[in-house]
Computed example of a mutant assay.
Amino acid sequence: MAKKKARPADIYLRFLKLVEAIRDTPSLPPLEPLEERILVLVARAGLQQERLSVRDMMAKEELGSPATIHGKLKSMRVKGWIILAETEDMRRKQIELTQAALLHFDRLSKCILKAAKAAH
């Protein structure tokens, strides 16, 4: 009997299953959906070696009001996902991922590779 060829959707669904497994053993408290969106924005900025300040984030109207964004940033800091680093201008704080958040992305990357490898 021939092995059934995996579809791209099968790889993605396997990835989601693997992600659920690592969520069951969290190293950091879970994020709310808006916090996850913010986390991705911070990660992308870091990948592109761009600075992202609290003020920059609060200006993103698609994320909600400045007060909502400020509250989510505070929550993410308390949960250990981000830190606010000093800049040359003491009034501006740069948002950066913590080492634990970077490890979380490493685990997600391993899930992607494992899901893709299982398809071959």
Rank of each mutant, 00 (worst) to 15 (best):
M1N: 09
M1Q: 06
A6D: 11
Y12T: 15
L13D: 05
A21N: 13
P26E: 07
P29E: 05
P30W: 01
E32R: 15
P33E: 13
E35L: 00
E35D: 01
E35G: 10
E36A: 11
I38Q: 05
I38D: 02
V42K: 07
A43T: 12
A43V: 02
R44C: 06
R44G: 06
Q48C: 02
R51S: 12
R51N: 15
M58H: 02
A59E: 12
K60F: 05
L63M: 11
S65F: 01
S65L: 11
S65Y: 00
A67W: 06
T68Q: 09
T68P: 00
T68V: 11
H70F: 14
G71P: 00
K74W: 09
K79T: 06
W81I: 07
W81P: 05
I82T: 09
I83C: 03
L84D: 05
L84A: 15
D89E: 04
M90S: 15
M90N: 07
T98K: 11
T98D: 06
T98Q: 10
Q99Y: 02
A100E: 09
A100R: 12
L102V: 07
L102N: 10
L103C: 03
L103F: 02
F105G: 13
D106A: 14
D106P: 00
D106S: 14
D106Y: 10
S109F: 06
S109Y: 01
S109I: 04
C111E: 00
C111M: 06
K114T: 15
K114Q: 12
A118D: 04
H120K: 14
